[in-house]
């Protein structure tokens, strides 16, 4: 549900949290991303007042804005946000630049299983992650779960927590794949793990604690601040808000092959050129992946 007027929340002297709706939806997320991009575009105009915007962090229902209170008052920033929001068309018709990116995943892999076994041994015994997801979602086999997770298109709703970690939601609103989180959370998760929590999929750019149920592992790099080669020549992170993701099942052998290619810099990431998309178009027909 989208609010008629946004709720502005003070987050210290130099941050404003703009809340656009009360619950997670693609509509709210599209609006948040569009507001964030409009503010960043205006930051590039170079007039004194608007340069005051330092950073924006769009998420599912909110945009966090960092601004310089010496150059722009909170009241002025609210007016700027209201102006941009009034310029936006209905959420379903908002056009956003979006790329389609293929992420190869070794589902039900030995590295995540080792992490799971470590948790069972050192913290407490729990149900197998993939079997648990199957049971909760009425899927009759792990193959059916892998088919389902890799057949739908995922939307990058936000990127953050740490170093380029994307949180994805299904573009198809009828998808109801859900999973509870670990309690207590894991102390570590293998780098590249693809995991499900709530209705979201996350991909871990590095070893990190977390509580999503592990599905598999990708050999791709999600964060590389040192590289000036594709796909990191313009941004140190692979996935940005507004990108779409298709997960492609691979074997453990293929995982190791791709991992070597990634290290050698010879792996060709499958990333389509950015094209302007709206929620209406995306939900009517999936866009083809560019060659």
């Amino acid at each position: 549900m989208l609010y008629e007027t946004p709720r502005y929340r003070t987050s210290g002297e130099r941050h404003l949290l703009v809340e656009l709706g009360a619950s997670v939806s693609l509509e709210a997320n599209f609006r948040a991303i569009a507001l964030s991009r409009a503010l960043e575009a205006s930051a590039g105009l170079g007039t004194e007042g608007i340069k005051a915007i330092i950073d924006t962090q769009p998420s599912f229902t909110t945009v966090l804005i960092e601004y310089d209170p010496k150059l722009l008052t909170q009241e002025g920033l609210k007016q700027l946000c209201s102006h941009h929001l009034s310029q936006l068309v209905q959420a379903e018709q908002i056009q956003l630049d979006s790329r389609l990116i293929e992420i190869p995943v070794a589902y039900n892999d030995r590295w995540c299983r080792a992490c799971f076994e470590d948790y069972c041994k050192t913290i407490k015994p729990i149900e197998d992650n993939l079997e648990l997801i199957c049971r909760i979602n009425g899927l009759d086999s792990i193959e059916a779960l892998i088919n389902y997770h890799s057949s739908i298109e995922w939307w990058v709703g936000t990127v953050g927590f740490i170093a380029g970690l994307p949180v994805l939601m299904p573009l198809d609103p009828s998808c109801q794949l859900r999973a509870p989180k670990y309690d207590p959370p894991r102390t570590w998760t293998p780098k590249g793990t693809v995991a499900l929590g709530g209705g979201f999929t996350a991909v871990y750019p590095m070893v990190t604690p977390d509580g999503y149920q592990m599905l598999g592992r990708t050999p791709l790099r999600l964060f590389d601040p040192q590289s000036d080669q594709a796909p990191f020549e313009e941004s140190p992170v692979l996935l940005s808000v507004g990108d779409r993701v298709k997960f492609v099942p691979i074997s453990e052998a293929r995982f190791e092959e791709i991992e070597r290619e990634v290290t050698a810099g010879t792996y060709r990431y499958s990333i389509s050129a950015a094209q302007s998309v709206s929620l209406d178009e995306l939900q009517q027909q999936p866009l083809p992946l560019a060659a």
């Binding site: 941050h15 949290l17 229902t61 953050g160 989180k181 709530g198």
Partner: peptide
Amino acid sequence: HSPDRDEHPSNKIDYGCHLGT
């Protein structure tokens, strides 16, 4: 709660945070 939140009343839909929050 909104239904997207987990059980504890301190849980929210993921949002941006920063130094000092």
